[in-house]
Nucleic acid binder design. Structure first.
Lengths: 334, 334
DNA sequence: ATGAAAGCGCTAACAG
DNA sequence: CTGTTAGCGCTTTCAT
């Protein structure tokens, strides 16, 4: 356990060369069983712990993966990280994490700071980045995985789902259920490509259909923001039958405001969200939303990275993990 | 930007020695303004990015901090990480993160894997660890910060709040409000020192007071688990006036079950939680709970680490960030 | 199958 | 103030 024990100490104790110890450590086949055992014994007796910093420098490979998400404290993003660490840990790799705070400038800073640590690969949230970020990432020469959305022009590889298509399907569900006066609630700050595509999906569907009214408002991405949106809708002279919120957080806030005001959901107002937070299934009425297995998304991202690093050639640069429209009580016509 | 540019290339270009470049990079005072400028120009022209792996090996200091939390996808823990990264990033340090999954064995594995990477310090969630974890951490020789609870016998330093005292204060509030038939709902799996202390606080208060009945049940730590607890309470022939849940997740689940069953909270049943998730303030009725600024807890933990690494002697090994009892509608007597 | 030796890119004395 | 030199602990040829 003593970290002052070095590989050369092990070699001395086992009466072999340092190269041999290194081979044992790295599972090289070219070591006789007897020698291997001698080395393993010496390692155990000395409580030797390899210094991965030195290995990183010599082998030009750190076993560190960098991940950048907008905010670490938001469950949608940290679930992805959970999935990544699960897989990486099983492969002896570790995860460095940083937050961009939805700022392009901070994102670039964090990326540059990470690259100086020579990670073996890097994960970034989202698919639309500044040119500076794109080129920095490209020149880094390491695998880059973009996540949580889809694009046909990834920097390198993307693993996600189509926020646009999900929004389209969700909006169509509402139309199928007979709702004709639709509002979409998007966010004021913290705007990003996922949110943008959800808005775009709503606009695209509603623009092609006739006999519809479709409006868009912006609120803060919070429970209070969602409540505010409902108040705006009620106070407006534009009729509204159904509201799709860009996030479950806002949708739940809207739902709770309806409870307070005695607005019957969905009879008087239908509500749909996006993300399938755990509360969505439990709240009254339960919330119609878009479900994505984010932990699995993280796992897939890590698997792609591990495969790439092992030289297994990736078949596809675009991995669609899909989504699911979950219809619950908040939009169900009686 | 080319990562094949080395410090020696910069030195050559600036026509100085490698030592001088290193001094400029590390902000040593012993460099003349003119020389410094020459070096900075060369760095800019070459797009040099220092290799922090090499620096780590030479300086015997990585600038990496390791953090272990039970589950990354749970907001309570990832908020702490958010606070840590905020501070660490400002000091040029980065965070490696790992999950223990509430398992002692996994925790030890993750810690050992991290130590091989020679982090400058390590953060672990909770204050009660196996002897193997304690000794491994102690022998590592680096600052160890335990978080999210308090103990008078930390491995090294602890930054947190007293889960025991918080539970005591919350239980007393219920008693002050006139509730006499109390139930505490604790968790089945994922038991840990924070949950244990919340239970102990409840038991301690209720055992000293007379004219009280106090019972404890266990449920799964989820919305459904909380709902189940309410169903058990209603079906029981033991009277219950107020329920304190070990977590807000369970409390919210219980509250939603009351909504479904038409149980008036708090008139028929008072409910209190623990953690102050954002939903607690928005739900109907709003939830009485214990509030802790977890992002700030993370910041403080990182500040302690940064200070220790800079040699600033820590005054206290025990940092209490406090908690707040937030009384809301779910326990308020009309 | 194994030992010896040459770095990996940087920091930190040590001289001057 | 600045250049030179000796490592940091490991991997990886290259011989043998």
């Amino acid at each position: 356990m003593d970290s002052t024990v070095r590989l050369s100490d092990v070699a001395k104790r086992a009466a072999v060369g340092v190269g041999t110890v290194s081979r044992v450590l790295n599972g090289s086949a070219n070591v006789s069983a007897a020698t291997r055992q001698k080395v393993l014994d010496a390692i155990a007796e000395l409580g030797y712990v390899p210094n991965l910093v030195a290995r990183s420098l010599a082998a030009n490979r750190t076993g560190l993966i960098a991940a950048i998400i907008p905010v670490i404290g938001y469950t949608q993003h940290s679930e992805v990280i959970q999935g990544m660490t699960d897989v990486l840990h099983a492969h002896g790799m570790n995860l460095m994490i940083g937050a961009s705070g939805y700022s392009d400038q901070v994102e670039l800073q964090v990326i540059e700071a990470f690259l100086a640590r020579r990670p073996d690969a890097i994960y970034v949230t989202g698919v639309r980045h500044t040119e500076a970020v794109r080129s920095t990432l490209q020149r880094s020469g390491i695998p880059v995985v973009e996540g949580s959305n889809l694009t046909d022009r990834p920097i390198d590889t993307v693993v996600g789902y189509s926020n646009f298509n999900a929004s389209v399907d969700l909006t169509r569900l509402l139309i199928d259920r007979g709702y004709r006066r639709l509002w979409h609630v998007t966010v004021t700050r913290d705007f990003n490509d996922r949110i943008d595509d959800r808005l775009a999906g709503f606009r695209w569907v509603t623009s092609t259909e006739t006999e519809l009214t479709a409006d868009v408002i912006r609120c803060e991405n919070s429970f209070d923001g969602g409540a505010e949106a409902v108040r705006l809708a009620m106070a407006s002279n534009i009729r509204v039958e159904a509201m799709t919120f860009a996030t479950d957080v806002m949708a739940v806030g809207g739902l709770l405001e309806c409870q307070r005001r005695g607005i019957n959901v969905p009879a008087q107002l239908a509500i749909a969200g996006f993300d399938d937070l755990t509360i969505a299934a439990s709240i009254n009425p339960s919330l119609t939303t878009i479900k994505v297995d984010r932990v699995d998304l993280g796992r897939k991202a890590a698997e792609i990275i591990v495969n790439r690093l092992q030289g297994n050639d990736q078949t596809s640069r675009i991995v669609d993990v899909g989504f699911q429209v979950v219809e619950r009580e908040s939009t169900r016509r009686l």
